[in-house]
Simulated assay, not measured.
Amino acid sequence: METKEYIESGILELYVYGLLSESENEEVTAMAKKNPEINAEIIGIEKAIVALSSSFSPFQSVANYEKIKAKLDLNQIAIIETEPSRNWAQYIGWAAAIILMIGIGYQYNQLEQSNKQVVNIETEKAKIEKEKNEFMLKNQQSETNLAVIRDSKNTVIILGGQTVAPESSAKIYWNKETQAVYVDASGLPEPPKGMVYQVWALKLNPLTPTSIGLLEKFDENNQHIFAVNNTEEAEAFGITLEPAGGSLTPTMEQLYTLGKV
């Protein structure tokens, strides 16, 4: 590279500013020793920097300024080989620490995502298991109800609506051999809050009612078929609406359905 091109490349300014690498500094120093034009250009750059610094330093005394200028005398100036003070180990350490923190953050985020996925899978699994159990229970209940309806040994008693609820109806499935009693209450309205239907086995002469069970959790029984207590003898069956927990004797004013055997 020719001297002019070398000077115009800008490397001498970087040299004076201390921004070159060690090898580049050595190269410029060697060139300055061999080439007077390059050495003169370096001196000129240094003078320009000092002059510029002086213009921005109003508190510098005239005496100090003259001392600085004297030191820049062309016959006394010497090229100082400078070694850039760069703590690369410190920069590399910080960069490594940042990369490590980013890596840890990424791994933590991935772990959190994995944990959330596991929780979601477990939740979904529990939900499916619950739905499966509910389906199996309903299916079992449906099979039981169907068996009751199809059992030819059952006597079916139709209970018609009474004065308080003429539109109501119900059916009793009574197996006289096993004494088991099932109630189909699908024809009854849902009982008001705090009330429950109570089933009675009746003897008519004299009228003797015997409670054989409550139709509890009415809204949870989709098919409204209930198993109640067994009974040996009955001439009729009735259903009344009673306060929650039932009554010792039927409230006749709340007799919803009644039917003879």
Rank of each mutant, 00 (worst) to 15 (best):
T3M: 10
Y6I: 02
E13P: 00
Y15P: 00
Y15C: 01
G18D: 07
S21F: 00
N25A: 12
N25F: 08
N25T: 11
N25P: 04
T29S: 14
T29C: 15
M31P: 06
A32T: 01
N35F: 09
N35I: 11
N35E: 12
I38Y: 00
I42M: 11
I43Y: 04
G44S: 02
I45Y: 03
K47C: 13
K47G: 10
A48P: 00
V50R: 11
L52M: 07
L52C: 04
A63D: 10
Y65T: 03
E66F: 00
I68H: 01
K71N: 15
L74I: 11
P84W: 12
Q90D: 01
Y91R: 04
W94Y: 13
A96Q: 13
I98Q: 10
N109P: 04
Q110T: 07
S114D: 08
Q117L: 05
E122A: 14
T123K: 14
K127H: 08
I128K: 06
I128W: 05
K130T: 09
N133R: 12
M136H: 05
M136A: 10
L137R: 15
K138H: 12
N139V: 03
L146C: 07
V148P: 09
I149T: 06
I149H: 02
I158G: 00
L159M: 05
G161S: 01
T163F: 03
V164M: 03
A165P: 01
Y173P: 02
N175K: 00
E177V: 08
E177A: 05
E177G: 01
E177L: 05
T178K: 11
Q179H: 12
D184E: 00
S186Y: 05
M195E: 15
V196R: 00
Y197L: 11
Q198K: 13
L202I: 15
N205E: 14
P206M: 07
T208P: 04
P209D: 09
P209M: 09
S211V: 09
I212W: 04
D219P: 06
E220N: 14
N222D: 15
Q223G: 12
Q223K: 14
I225K: 07
A227R: 14
A227P: 06
N229G: 13
A236Q: 09
F237A: 04
T240N: 09
G245N: 13
G245W: 06
G246D: 08
L248H: 05
T251E: 13
E253K: 13
L255F: 11
Y256F: 08
K260L: 11
